[in-house]
Amino acid sequence: MQDLAWAISLWLMALLAITFIYVVMKSGDKADASAVQSGAGKIRATLFWLILIAGVPVTMVTLTDLPYAAQSDATAQIVTAEGSQFNWDISPTTIVAGKPVEFHVTAADATHGFAIFDDTMTLLTQTQAMPEYTNILKYTFSKAGTYKVLCLEYCGSGHHVMSAEITVVAAGGM
């Protein structure tokens, strides 16, 4: 997902840059303003409809799989996680791969961010850890290994040292 986000951003920014550079290169020519504006109006209308036509399906597709759990899954492994300055209290810390996990995430003091990274430090998923609230984050680990939990919401002077580990074992390994 991160690579896709990067590629889309880069290509669109490059396209925009090429357009701006083209206009700068042509800016020294002098043409009748009304003729330029008239042509520009047509391009603008086309651009507007193109954005709208592309935007509607993109919006619909990206809204089909939201990370908001409507209700608890009875078959899921339940893991509770409580953030506090500057520790994670996670239980249990060993879970099984291939089976859904529900992280019940909260905080004891300030707001923290509960984020799970794999062994290459790729960010897999996250939610906020808030006092007085329990956020349910669903995730299914596809492979066994050691995963790192970092705090992604600034919470004070020890924010960057607030980390923990989760061990994911293959099914039948517990």
């Binding site: 800016s27 043409a31 330029v36 520009a40 603008r44």
Partner: peptide, 14 residues
């Protein structure tokens, strides 16, 4: 887009 249209072929010196 407006900025582009106003600058395009305007004879602007930068």
């Amino acid at each position: 887009f407006g900025a582009l249209a106003y600058v395009h072929r305007s004879g602007l010196s930068w």
